[in-house]
Design a protein around this nucleic acid. Structure first.
Lengths: 209, 209
DNA sequence: ATAATATATGACTTGCCGGTCACATGACCA
DNA sequence: TGGTCATGTGACCGGCAAGTCATATATTAT
């Protein structure tokens, strides 16, 4: 937790510091991110930084909380009422939200991505623990429910599929940014719909198997 | 390229240096990997290291070549004659090889994984360029061919699917190591087959859509 | 105006990094 | 034996990192 001093700061100064820190952590993984660069870019003295935060760790966890909160804003309506849609529509909306987040908050998205890649490291684990139950568990419940509702066939490996659906969100975002567009546009729908078609029906010829 | 001095070294010494370097690059990303630690663990003087290699970069690229060669050993028979099987069997065999590589050469696999996560960074790009055409392009050709052979339905997004199949290899490996087993055992077949069932048929109930 | 308290500062410490270099050691040949 | 050349060595260099601290400057209460 940042020190009281940090929260006593005028809002614009606090905002600048956070903005600069976000840029730093988006550009470099934790170990390479530099407090020296952050204070230089934020225009504050190094000593001041340590009046605001315990240490580099403290700053990082604070930034991670901002990222988490922002991401939640994109998802919250979907997560809070997940059964208003059938599972495929829900996944569609979740993926679209994910891409939207990646496009509109690219720095935050970069930081998020690094966390998912480092699920085992001590620091990154602390982030995950403080956070929600994992997306993976969310999809597992969702799938089981969808099987009961006969939206999804019952002879699937639920654990594996939950894992795949979680991971493919990230894959889809990467694909979208790399091959479709840097901006949020109509292509997003097409890409997500292609993916959902695959998720529903696979790629085998009809009647096979 | 390592200097001539390195290749003049007795084989066991060369092997130790490489082994230690592999451990280092498996434990830390390039920027955090430490030449100091490597020379200490290998029991050589720092000056000696720079008799063998131009710099850290040089060592890393050499290690990457070893990793690439080793990985190729696991795949080569499949890649050289890709059309001896239908596409699903081929993907099955490729994925099994991938898991086998990850289980039997865990350090190499960790290094490989980091490369795929850093496709954009300058150094990691140099590795990719020196290497084969990407797995992604391989699967794209494969899919187009499978459509002609009517193994795969024709109304799919080939580019997207090629991307997904490539990425899901890594996802499957991660899932296998995390949830199924640390060793190579029978569970591997079951996991891969569950995945292929999904790839062929999707998860939707039959007749839906 | 004075005292007390909160905040700002940047030179400084310690530690590790990649890389260098003058010199030591050994191998081979005359 | 002495000379030449390849190899081994670790103290050393400049640079940057995280974090500290004595001191300076505001701000507030009295």
């Amino acid at each position: 937790m940042p020190k009281e001093t940090f929260f006593n700061l005028p809002e614009d100064k606090r905002t600048i510091i956070c903005q600069v820190a976000v840029d730093e952590f988006a550009a470099y993984p934790f170990e390479q991110a530099s407090i020296n660069r952050i204070v230089a870019n934020a225009g504050i003295a190094k000593g001041s930084f340590y009046q605001y935060f315990e240490d580099k760790n403290d700053l990082f966890l604070h930034i991670m909380q901002l990222v988490g909160e922002e991401k939640l804003k994109y998802m919250s309506s979907l997560i809070q009422a997940p059964y208003q849609y059938d599972i495929f529509t829900l996944i569609r909306e979740l993926y679209i939200s994910g891409i939207q987040f990646a496009v509109e908050r690219p720095q935050y998205a970069k930081i998020s991505k690094r966390i998912l890649e480092n699920k085992n490291s001590a620091l990154y684990q602390e982030v995950m623990n403080s956070n929600m139950p994992t997306a993976y568990e969310f999809f597992e419940v969702l799938l089981k429910n969808a099987i009961v509702k006969k939206e999804v066939r019952e002879n699937i490996n639920v654990k594996l599929l939950a894992h795949l659906i979680t991971s493919m969100n990230a894959v889809l975002i990467e694909y979208y940014l790399e091959h479709v567009s840097q901006d949020y546009d109509e292509g997003i729908m097409e890409t997500v719909d292609h993916f959902l078609d695959f998720l529903k029906n696979g790629i085998g010829v009809n009647g096979t198997e």
